[in-house]
Design a protein around this nucleic acid. Structure first.
Length: 402
RNA sequence: GGAGAGGUUCCCGAGUGGCUAAAGGGGGCAGACUGUAAAUCUGUUGUCGGAAGACUACGGAGGUUCGAAACCUCCCCUCUCCA
């Protein structure tokens, strides 16, 4: 039958790059039904509005969502404004900033504009889970909570670990998976996508849906992108991320800073370069016909071009190899009558947090004025001539005096 | 409610009343090396100060003492066992 063939083809496409899939049969059935009845599936994915930046890690997931859209399905893009209030309590000593309503809306908005670099806005519905979660009264909440038990909750990796090592787990944290699962009930989701770290929550959704008499959603996870440090997952809070709105130069440079090993991971998850080409590159490096650096340059070009276009990517590459980039950040500074201590200047333009840190930078030989190493900690600037200031390997800019 | 163990700098973790801005590790940063990579090595890692030095820090508030992260009191928080 025709529909079978089509289903199989689509299934293969959707399965590529997926880590977990529960279950393939169900997904096949849903696809079949779509082909028969024409009713698009609701593909759900949730996003935490605690920060407003989308980074490359998110794009792995979004590419998959886009794939569903291209096959005619609809994406329910859930802004977790209600669940954000539960938050992630691992950093207990840090008082987590409670976001105001406005901040969340703000984040959601900038988030969306970034997301639509990848997603099809026509086929995306942005929904806030407070819409239904805030309507749950106490009785309904109890009912929801009764659908799951503690032993199973403790199966979740991070709960299990914290329980074992004797760390605190607040009761309300148990509500997080339930709330997220309830989102699926409220949306009657057909499919939910998430990173592999979400697997537990996604499966709770399946369970809850059948408890509420719905057909359980298909659950699919995509691999987590490792951050620039090569160890932890890419995340804003670890500061090891590349944001999709970052300037081309920075994006290029950041990709270049990853390790050679990590490069292959990025090739697989972030580019459309076919596997056999990737294998060929690895081979070339093995027998010394290709320099790994060149492979990384191509990777950086690919990623940068995706968000900034080809020409900008090429320019970023040139800048990367130039001693001093052509489009330096400019720092206008007012020069006081008595002159300005270099230390103060460094702090003033935000290159270091404190003067002590700036002093260290100079003492350790990481500070340059117009490519001239600065050795005098007490250096005072008296002339209004502008110069290029470099502090450490990353902070560089032109200082203009007035 | 009862018994016990704890809360130390970004994180983990040591700390005898003065020699402790506080060992050690991790992480970060800088330098060397290199491919403006990784790995490795070295240094550095509270603030102000050119420096000498000063100031602020060991859950919170008081107290003892010439002197407290360390001793006492109360409070807050976490964990374990019992109920």
């Amino acid at each position: 039958m025709m529909s079978d063939e089509r289903t199989r083809h689509e299934l293969d496409q959707l399965k590529s790059g997926i880590v977990d899939l529960y279950t393939e049969e169900e997904l096949g059935k849903k696809l079949d039904r779509f082909h028969r009845e024409g009713k698009p599936m609701v593909v759900k994915a949730g996003f935490d509005p605690t920060s407003s930046d989308i980074h490359l890690g998110h794009t792995v997931l979004m590419n998959k969502m886009r794939q569903f859209q291209d096959l005619g399905h609809r994406v329910a893009y859930v802004v977790g404004d209600a669940t954000a209030m539960i938050g992630d309590p691992t950093g207990r000593n840090k008082t987590r900033k409670v976001l105001t309503r406005d901040e969340i809306l703000d984040h959601a908005k900038t988030y969306a504009t970034q997301a639509f670099k990848i997603l099809d806005p026509q086929k995306t519905e942005m929904v806030f889970n407070s819409t239904w979660l805030f309507k749950l009264d106490f009785m309904k909440l109890i009912d929801l909570a009764s659908k799951y038990n503690v032993a199973r909750m403790l199966e979740r990796e991070d709960f299990k670990n914290r329980f074992k090592s004797g760390d605190s787990i607040s009761v309300h944290e148990f509500l997080y998976p339930l709330a997220q699962g309830y989102d699926s009930v409220a949306l009657k989701a057909d499919v939910e996508l998430g990173g592999t770290d979400q697997i537990f929550n996604l499966l709770v959704g399946r369970k809850l849906q059948s408890d509420y008499g719905q057909e359980p959603q298909v659950v699919m996870t995509v691999p987590l992108l490792v951050g620039l440090d090569g160890v932890q997952k890419m995340s804003k809070s670890y500061g090891n991320y590349i944001g999709v709105t970052e300037p081309a130069d920075g994006m290029f440079a950041k990709v270049m800073s990853i390790s050679d090993d990590l490069m292959w991971n990025y090739y697989e998850l972030l580019t459309t370069v076919p596997v056999d080409e990737i294998a060929a590159m690895k081979n070339g490096i093995q027998n010394d016909t290709i320099h790994p650096r060149d492979c990384k340059v191509n990777l950086a070009l690919f990623i940068t071009a995706r968000f900034h276009g080809e020409p900008a990517a090429r320019e970023a590459k040139e800048n990367f190899y130039r001693e001093i980039p052509s489009n330096l950040a400019e720092y206008p500074v007012t020069l006081p009558d008595g002159g300005l201590a270099l230390l103060d200047l460094i702090v003033q333009i935000g290159f270091t947090e404190s003067k002590a840190e700036a002093r260290r930078m100079i003492q350790q030989g990481g500070t340059y004025i117009d490519a001239q190493k600065v050795s005098d900690v007490a250096l005072k600037i008296t002339s209004k001539d502008s110069f290029v200031l470099k502090v450490g390997k990353k902070k560089i800019g032109r200082v203009n005096f007035s």
